[in-house]
């Protein structure tokens, strides 16, 4: 059985635990064992911390990586932000011996050392490259009759100099994984557009970032999808909580159900919406849940 150490980050375990539960359930079903990364912290969030102070960012990120080095597992992230932060830190330290020495001087004060033995993976990229859409299709017991708007999020594919996942303007790998569940990935205008949350922008100027996500939701609605499927709890929050904020501030109702890929996959594997926490969103998801129940065999 393949083993990975499960890096939770902040938003999934502390706001959307359904994503955490769904990841465990679905990966176990695919023969992947997830070890807890005990005592892991914030990745830390790249947009804010990386530009504030590189030393703090690198020290905290490398400490998280040393936890997985101890277990001898590669790290599994379920968030584009964690993926970006930990991948970038891991690369930088692996490639720059001087920087690695500097960071290890700091880490030695807490009895740790960055060795550079493990890789950082993102659930979508891992499923696509190591498991494959075909194997997922074979494992599906409850093919989904859903129209889905796929939201890649920016940091899954960009900056491409550090990601190497192919086209950044027209990628297809995430769509293939969504379609492996039986669902249809529906194209919509400006599909690769940003949700607005990253770079510390949501924290700094939430109302302006809501205009970005509002437009994104309009475009999804125009494509008449049943739900949006994302790869990142922070996009997830911006898309889901964002709808409650848009309602309050712009008096506009969207009612778009938001799922993380692990939750969509969980439905296709026959888990109930409640087991996957799909009913725990801040925007009502009951219509989608009804539709999934109605279609279940």
């Amino acid at each position: 059985m393949t083993k990975l150490s499960f890096f939770l980050g902040c938003i999934a375990p502390n706001r959307y635990p359904g994503i955490e539960a769904s990841t465990q359930k679905t990966l176990n079903k695919l023969g992947v064992e997830l070890d807890d990364l005990e005592g892991a912290s914030c990745c830390p969030a790249p947009g804010v911390f990386r530009s504030f102070d590189k030393t703090t960012w690198l020290a905290m990120a490398s400490r998280n990586i040393t936890l997985s080095e101890e277990l001898g597992d590669d790290i599994l992230t379920i968030c584009n932000g964690c993926f970006g932060s930990l991948t970038d830190a891991n690369h930088m330290l692996k490639e720059d011996p001087e920087l690695k020495d500097d960071v290890n001087t700091i880490l030695s004060q807490i009895g740790r050392e960055f060795k550079g033995t493990q890789d950082v993976r993102h659930i979508v990229e891992y499923l696509y490259q190591d498991i494959g859409a075909d194997r997922i299709k074979e494992a599906v017991t409850n093919p989904l009759d859903l129209k889905v708007a796929v939201h890649y999020g920016c940091h899954l594919v960009k900056p491409s100099k550090e990601r190497h996942l192919g086209s950044v303007e027209n990628p297809t790998f995430f769509d293939e994984l969504v379609e492996a569940t039986g669902a249809t990935s529906v194209d919509y205008e400006d599909k690769m557009a940003c949700c607005g949350a990253g770079g510390g922008a949501r924290t700094a100027v939430v109302d302006t970032t809501l205009k970005l996500v509002d437009k994104k939701l309009d475009n999804m609605e125009a494509a008449e999808v049943d739900c949006v499927v994302d790869a990142c709890p922070f996009c997830h929050l911006q898309l889901d909580v964002g709808q409650t904020e848009i309602k309050k501030k712009f008096e506009k109702e969207h009612g778009m159900p938001v799922l993380h890929y692990s939750q969509l996959l969980g439905l296709a594997f026959g888990f109930t919406p409640e087991e996957l926490g799909i009913d725990m969103n801040f925007t009502n998801t009951s219509k989608l849940i009804e539709k999934v129940r109605g279609g279940a065999k």
Binding site: G47, C154, K158, C194, A197, A204, V205
Partner: peptide, 8 residues
């Protein structure tokens, strides 16, 4: 501080 770092 407005940039979302979308990298487009």
């Amino acid at each position: 501080w407005y940039c979302t770092t979308c990298y487009k």
